[in-house]
Design a protein around this nucleic acid. Sequence first.
DNA 1: CCAAAAGTGTTATGGATACACCCATGA
DNA 2: TCATGGGTGTATCCATAACACTTTTGG
Lengths: 229, 229
Amino acid sequence: MFIESYNQQEKVLLAVDCIIFGFDKENLKILLVKRDIEPEKGKWSLMGGFLNAGENLDDAATRVLHRLTGLSNVYMEQLRAYSAPDRDPVARTVSVSYYALINISEHTEINEDFSAKWFDIKKFPDLIFDHNTMVANAMSRLRYRASTKPIGFELLPEKFTMKQLQTLYEVILGETLDKRNFINKINALDILLKTDEKDMKSSRKGSFLYMFDEEKYKVKVSDGFTFKL
Amino acid sequence: MFIESYNQQEKVLLAVDCIIFGFDKENLKILLVKRDIEPEKGKWSLMGGFLNAGENLDDAATRVLHRLTGLSNVYMEQLRAYSAPDRDPVARTVSVSYYALINISEHTEINEDFSAKWFDIKKFPDLIFDHNTMVANAMSRLRYRASTKPIGFELLPEKFTMKQLQTLYEVILGETLDKRNFINKINALDILLKTDEKDMKSSRKGSFLYMFDEEKYKVKVSDGFTFKL
DNA sequence: CCAAAAGTGTTATGGATACACCCATGA
DNA sequence: TCATGGGTGTATCCATAACACTTTTGG
């Protein structure tokens, strides 16, 4: 800010809205809540909340996510501010969107107060206000980030099969990938740990489980390595 | 937003701050203003302003830029929100940063009320608040965007030499480029118009002037072309 | 005639892509 | 024994990177 005096400036409500992504080993999902206040009561929306005094936006987004899911230490990233004057019919509210990546399989403790539900990213209901746009923008940022940083692992359980990892990247990138090329690429990155356990659910033969070796990744990064898929 | 009632929420001041990039045919610059109010009076800062009622953030950023430079129709892009509770010591203010790309050579009508000055991006004074961080983030977004969209032309005069274009990309990307490879790549994109005029200032032989063919670019994009440098 | 910048193509390298068969196992 | 998904390697192609000499012309 500059020039105008601080007094006599309009203040606005500032909110955060979270695009919460999950992956159920087959499809990419988003977690939506059913709005229980007017306006638009009963319609689906992103989980959101207002910024509190003494709190920054990251804190607010973390708090909002925690309130819904009980989770902490979740990967979140700020996306952008939405500020159309009439975007919220009740009061002038500017909202900053965040996306979060959570691992569905290990945590299904969704707070029931919010009537939340997972929806497939390819078909979910119309959302209130500008939330549809927020989701679309989040999706495109996710696509970019997934090819730049190893964030895919945030969406997977600690141990996962190569097939799951590949399927995840396929749904994020929106294209099918060649199995051998994908595995070659991943192995070339040298950031996975192959366990000697097998997942026997998906086939008779069973498929090996892998883990993301975060320590190794960090060391490689500090040596100048950059993730690229 | 969700759940909390709209009443009794803290409202905040919302500002925009502009990272204004320019290019003088040799170096990348940013336009800074000397702050004439307390706190930090006399220190350099980004040009900014508060969000008005009935205005969205893009409008506010456009207005702020216009006030300083007199320019309209400038390329601007929202970057992100800065929200540390104590980032502005006077009042709780959240700021959304924008970067703008302007063509220095054709417009030097900087409003004198603001004691503004162009600084080389590689050495500019310490800025107030979190403005240094804003500039750093803007720079990294600019680097990314420049290899994704033909925004470089926003910084150049209508007609420019290949050398100028190459130098621009070199300062944005922070690396030197091979002349022949650069020209081959640019020509392969097939979005430039070669005029029959020459710039005689830089050499005895003179170098041809080119223009960005925006119409052709748009047609190509709608045919599925994507700019990539 | 010389200094200074403009202009111009080809080869080499490496990463990306395409592609098909055998293996292990439970039913 | 057979059906199902898991696992594996190589050849081709294309985009990128490296690289040096000739042209023009004002002084």
